[in-house]
Simulated assay, not measured.
Amino acid sequence: MNDKFYVTDCEGPLSINDNAYEISDFFIPEGGHFFSILSNYDDMLVEENTEGYLAGSTLKLILPFFKAYGLTEKDLIEFSEDNIFMIDGAYNMIKYIQSIMPCYIVSTSYNQYIKALSDKTGFIYENTYSTNLQLDKYDLNQEEQDKLLDIHDNILFDSSFENIHRIFTNVISKMEINNLIESVKPVGGIGKRDAILDIIDKNNYKPENLMYSGDSITDKEALEYARDNGGLSISFNGNIHSIESASISIASTNNLILAVIADIFNKKGKSAVYDFINDYNNESLETILNCSDNIEITQQLLVNKPSIDIVTNDNKETLNNMTKVVRDKVRGKNIGNLG
């Protein structure tokens, strides 16, 4: 099939949330800081190319502490439903792209959050991939609960890689609650690439017809797959990990530019998108007016002028500095600094 199709990460390109961080911050003492420590440990394991380790495994590592502080799936669902915050333009962007091409979300987020977000935005939930979590299936005995509460304090006191690695390798791995950790397979890193391959296989798509957008280390393999197979690979308000893996970098407080690019890609192909970017950087006003048929999208883009750049070996650090400002503004520094 020659149909174009769009696959996107959720947190970053669509929502400003980091759902797991926010759950931790709400339910666990000093939970935001604690989650950030585990996220940094997770990033180090990914960067060291630890065999068999999946990017996004912070969502596994935090789970024993969810149990220790009494969280249930009902808590996760209700919190997620009440705390969905979309980037400006996202509702119209989702509606528009779903009307012109097949659209999928591939997210490291828990399935409870993705279901809540789909219900709220009108996204087709059957077209989503996320980290499946069955939190209530696993019990925590009193002895292990007490030990985990002590471990929580220990990690806050000593957040070194060596201490955390010792705890998870020599202590938590020997606890019964470790079965909960082992039950979860995060859809991050190669998991996102595998989800794309599944989408392609099930629908007989061609890789070069893929448009993918992401913003973090969990999108690295998916962005590289799109880029290396002739598709459209977009880092949207991305950190250095995503910029280094993408062909295009966008910094914007509004994501409707993705709808414009999707429309061009769908109608005219990849080369037309690159022509649009070159024209846009020479004369943004005229280019937007010429390329967008949707009056509402055009008006919002003229007000919220995005930065759009083709990634080269020479500009990656410059783009990272540019997107960091927008990333922190849109998502806040605590979430913006997560890998």
Rank of each mutant, 00 (worst) to 15 (best):
V106L: 03
T323P: 00
I200C: 12
I87S: 10
N19R: 02
S15D: 05
I181G: 11
G31L: 06
K120F: 13
I264S: 07
K270A: 04
F161C: 05
D158I: 10
H152Q: 10
H33F: 06
I217M: 14
L289N: 11
P13W: 04
K67A: 11
L135D: 08
D215M: 09
E22T: 06
N92C: 02
S24R: 00
D219W: 02
F26R: 10
K202E: 13
Y6F: 15
T131Y: 05
H152K: 10
R166G: 02
D228R: 13
A55P: 07
S36R: 14
D3V: 07
I261H: 08
D43M: 13
F265R: 10
L61H: 15
V311D: 02
N282H: 12
S118P: 00
G269S: 05
T312K: 01
I297Q: 03
E144H: 09
N141R: 00
L135R: 08
G336H: 04
T58M: 07
I177D: 00
I250S: 06
D228Q: 14
L156W: 10
I243F: 09
I335A: 12
I172Q: 01
E48K: 15
E286D: 11
S159L: 03
E208I: 02
L63E: 12
P102W: 05
S252C: 04
F79Q: 08
K4L: 07
F34N: 02
S249Q: 10
M86N: 05
I77G: 05
F79H: 12
I151V: 04
L223C: 05
V46T: 13
G70S: 02
V330T: 04
Y91V: 11
D150W: 03
I264T: 04
I94M: 13
I87W: 06
V171R: 01
D136M: 02
L289D: 08
N315D: 03
N40M: 03
Y21T: 11
K137G: 01
F157G: 00
I77S: 06
L140D: 03
D263P: 03
I295A: 09
M322N: 15
I84T: 08
E22Q: 14
E283K: 12
D275V: 07
G269M: 07
N239L: 11
P207D: 09
L45Y: 06
Q299K: 14
L302Y: 06
D146G: 02
E162R: 09
N19P: 01
D3N: 14
Y212I: 12
N17W: 04
I240N: 11
F168W: 13
E244Q: 14
N204K: 12
P306L: 08
T287I: 02
Y53T: 01
L197H: 09
R166T: 08
E162D: 14
Q112T: 14
F34I: 00
F265Y: 15
S213F: 07
G188L: 11
D3S: 15
N2D: 15
E78N: 15
G70A: 03
